[in-house]
Design a protein around this nucleic acid. Structure first.
Length: 606
DNA sequence: CGAGTTTGACCGGCGC
DNA sequence: GCGCCGGTCAAACTCG
């Protein structure tokens, strides 16, 4: 059939519309019938669902009409059939009934495939198609459409329809898009939630797997000796806190944690005179009761010397001790940066600055201000040996949601601290794997120059320090050389006390193994871990543990979404110029030298 | 004027 | 007990 022949006519409105509403999203499906070319078009999909063809020509009545090119099966119309009370989506074939007394009603033939009903039934839409399928031309003008003409029909129809925009159609489309956007937004929110949970599960999973493997290996001779010394000591200290709790009643009564601003202590040099009188002692007692519980616990942990006493009846105390332990576990990040402070996504307020012994650069103290009462603090200090290296030490765990930009750093440090504190039940290799995974994870995201392949990532170091009283893990991101033996780096272990024996550990990705017995001062080629250990024996579960951690770590590292999110979040951390007033002030504070006196001589700074 | 920084003093642990 | 040292406080100060 040639288009535009006017084989069918309309009485008035050249376009007749009828709506079919889909109940799964309440979006109406709008059908336009175009008498010019005898087509019925789904305006949502811009598809011609039917083409009406008059095969006989009388001017008065419709002899026979076919709807060809019927593609309504793709349009998922709703069948308002009473047989389907649930209004499930139906696929309908539209046919035009010949000799229909209603003239040109569309009849929907419901094959009911979705419901597996085999009894086909027909129903009529009491909707006038508007086609008004009356021929006005002679039969000689009307030929059955060729295949080519049928194929061309949709395009021509669409072009013509675009010239007649309909507000209702557009609104329906907008509504549909809104619903879709809302759904996508919910999906994104859900994905973000799952993403955070998965990260935490990743750490737990690695812990569990390594513990299980440890048990399977059994009582191999040196396993107990291979446990991390420092974390075990620390955990014992934490348990000992319970014993202290029993004997230190005045410190354990108050379980609340007042904010630091609520303190009533008066240390002002302008307000206090003699500090050794009785009233001062009473004030101290009150202050002790009002001091934050975490500090109390930490202090008790520090002064505890009896690791054998336990009180398992007080889970609350255990929890508090654990929190205090987490509070005091530190993660130090060494990064080469000219900026005064790495931009880790959190908001910090400087509350102090001191000269530290052995370093001419002052140490600045910051606390997190993203939420009131957040216990997280950090110290920022330039390395004495290399002023381009910025050492940022984090302490504590955020008690508030973090922006995406802060998630990477916070979770990496949190993971490292968790690993550090879980060392009592894990071998050195276990910790080696876990901590170095965190290190490489951070390194690959912090340092854009790093390869995406973990095994070829920038050389990073993870160092555990037993520097009393706080266990500290140092994530060293300053190494860009691949020297197989970089233990000569002068700023490799700024916190580790010299008295602690060092043993080398393997590359976490298992590609570079070496003999621990003969290379006690060697670092692995790409990533090493040094921690105190009383046993230098090589670990028998070395490779197997690697495989587990490698698998998990590589899976995460290779996840493009996971990696991309973190890269975007912290790509601005390193090398970012100071932009905030805080950072500008810090620039002057951290970068300047002083006389190097280690005492409380703040006069020297800034 | 409020938020953030500076800075001198205080506190407590630790070693001698 | 004393001094050293790291950490913290809070009034004074600065800045936008």
């Amino acid at each position: 059939m040639r288009r535009g022949d006017g084989g069918l006519s309309m009485d008035s409105d050249p376009i007749a519309r009828f709506f079919l509403r889909s109940n799964n999203n309440n979006n109406p499906v709008v059908l336009n019938s175009f008498p010019e070319d005898n087509t019925v078009v789904n305006t949502t999909t811009d598809r011609v669902i039917a083409t009406a063809t008059a095969t006989t020509a009388t001017s008065a009545s419709l002899q026979q009409v076919n709807l060809s090119s019927c593609s309504s099966n793709n349009n998922n119309f709703i069948n308002h059939d009473h047989h389907h009370h649930n209004n499930t989506r139906q696929e309908l074939d539209f046919i035009l009934t010949p000799n229909n007394k209603y003239g040109d009603n569309l009849v929907a033939r419901d094959d009911d495939d979705n419901n597996n009903h085999h009894n086909h039934h027909s129903l009529e839409f009491k909707v006038n198609t508007g086609l008004n399928l009356l021929t006005t031309s002679t039969s000689s003008d009307k030929q059955p459409p060729t295949e080519e003409e049928d194929n061309n029909t949709p395009l021509n129809s669409q072009d013509r329809r675009r010239t007649k925009p309909e507000v209702g159609v557009i609104e329906a489309e907008i509504e549909r898009v809104k619903v879709e956007n809302e759904r996508l937004r919910e999906m994104i929110d859900e994905a973000n939630t799952h993403y955070s949970a998965l990260q935490m599960h990743h750490v737990n999973l690695m812990n569990d797997k390594n513990k299980n493997k440890k048990q399977l290996i059994g009582n191999n001779s040196t396993n107990s000796d291979q446990r991390v010394l420092v974390p075990r000591q620390f955990m014992d200290l934490g348990l000992a806190t319970n014993a202290d709790e029993d004997h230190d009643a005045d410190a354990g009564d108050n379980k609340e944690e007042p904010s630091s601003s609520s303190r009533s202590r008066s240390r002002s040099p302008y307000a206090s005179g003699n500090s050794k009188n009785s009233s001062e002692q009473e004030k101290k007692r009150i202050e002790r009761e009002e001091s934050p519980i975490q500090e109390q616990e930490a202090k008790k942990i520090q002064r505890s010397s009896s690791p054998t006493k336990h009180n398992n009846n007080n889970n609350n105390v255990d929890q508090q001790a654990h929190e205090a332990t987490m509070r005091k576990a530190r993660v130090s990040v060494r990064a080469r940066s000219e900026a005064p402070m790495i931009t880790d996504g959190c908001q910090w307020r400087k509350y102090g600055q001191k000269m530290a012994k052995g370093n001419p650069c002052p140490r600045a103290y910051y606390r997190c201000t993203m939420a009131s009462g957040c216990p997280v603090r950090k110290q920022v200090q330039r390395c004495a040996e290399d002023r381009t290296v910025l050492v940022t030490t984090y302490e504590g765990k955020h008690n508030h949601p973090l922006p995406p930009a802060a998630m990477a750093m916070a979770q990496t440090t949190s993971s490292a601290a968790t690993m550090l504190l879980s060392g009592s039940s894990m071998s050195t290799n276990d910790n080696n794997n876990l901590i170095n995974n965190a290190t490489n994870f951070l390194a690959t995201t912090l340092l854009p120059s790093s390869s995406s392949s973990p095994s070829s990532a920038t050389s990073t170091m993870a160092t555990i320090s037993a520097s009393a009283p706080f266990p500290t893990i140092t994530l060293d991101l300053t190494h860009d050389d691949h020297s197989p033996n970089n233990n000569n780096n002068p700023f490799q272990f700024p916190i580790r006390p010299s008295t602690i024996p060092q043993i080398p550990f393997h590359n976490i990705f298992g590609a570079h193994h070496h003999d621990n017995n003969n290379n006690n001062n060697n670092q692995s080629k790409f990533c090493g871990l040094q921690m105190p250990n009383t046993n230098n024996n090589n670990n028998q579960d070395h490779s197997s543990n690697n495989n587990i951690v490698d698998t998990v770590g590589a899976a995460i590292a290779s996840d493009p979404n996971f990696t991309a999110a973190l890269v975007s979040a912290i790509s601005s951390i390193i090398g970012a110029a100071a932009t905030t007033p805080t950072q500008q002030n810090n620039n002057t504070a951290i970068g300047n030298n002083s006389n190097g006196n280690g005492s409380n001589n703040n006069k020297n700074n800034i």
